[in-house]
Amino acid sequence: MLLKLYRRISPPNRQRIYIIPSRFGFMFAFFLLIMLLGAINYSNSMSHLLVFLLVSLGHTAMLHTHRNIAKIELKHCHAEPVFCGQTATFTVVINNPNQRDFHQIELAHQPNKIISWNPFKRLSGFVYKNHISLVPAQQSVSSTIEITTQQRGYQSLGRLRVSTLFPLGLFNSWTHFNTSARVLVYPQAEGILPLPVATNSGEKIMLSQQKGLDDFSGFQNYRKGDPIHSIAWKAVARDDVLRTKQFSGAHSGQRCLTWNDTAGVGNTEQRLSQLCQWLLISEQTKSSSQLELPNNTIAYGIGEQHLHNCLTALALYHDA
């Protein structure tokens, strides 16, 4: 029976939870010490009683703070690819398997893993990111963590810290999740070179009606990575939905975007950025494209998946 009770309280493989007094907790202890000295000096029974009540309240607060995070689970942590310089948004789903609500959960992450002989040092370097007011009992709540991107390639979230000060703020209790979550960062889309001319094979692919340059052909819901200048701002004002203006132009057709075409732009990063910009415009104009990199070639294609494949190749490109 006792064993059953123990299992109920402390299931195996649970997340390790840490707790230390917050700075307000230390302040509280300091105040209590002064009050205790006053109580002893005046030999005042009720002052003793109050000091002991508050000391005990500190202990109760510790248990409550621990309970407010016990058994917390990280269900899901994922981010959609972004272009370099944009903010990557990780969606984090926190689950509360308990019969009680969690309150005031704070999310922080440690972008750079700190390796040190000093265990306290390993607790530093966390950046506060978001705050969840309530995780109801036996429910999950999703929150976001936004990080800025500076470099193309994979950027990992690093160690995630889920912490709480609730209810009294005297103790800080936390747990770490070593997530493998990472975000793919595409190169920044920029460049000065004009888009290479499309070769209209005309045999297999008759993509769109040949209309005048920059003819407006309709709206499409905004997707991450769409150029800002193509957003239909007037439409946003109307109904708060981001849309991009779609144009059908003379460029429709087939296009081969090669590494060598960008030779005049500058270094590797700038060349990748140029290719990225071309790919986006090409996709926008609904023309089929092929990407040729020194060590990789992605065959002709069109659509979201094709674009993603091309951009991934750019993001992960290494000089041979």
Partner: peptide, 21 residues
């Protein structure tokens, strides 16, 4: 929370060594 704090308060009140002020 305060009610949950009462047992420790009582124990300390009775047993915490009193010093003659």
């Amino acid at each position: 929370m305060l009610v949950q704090s009462l047992p420790i308060m009582l124990i300390l009140f009775v047993l915490f060594p009193r010093i003659a002020g």
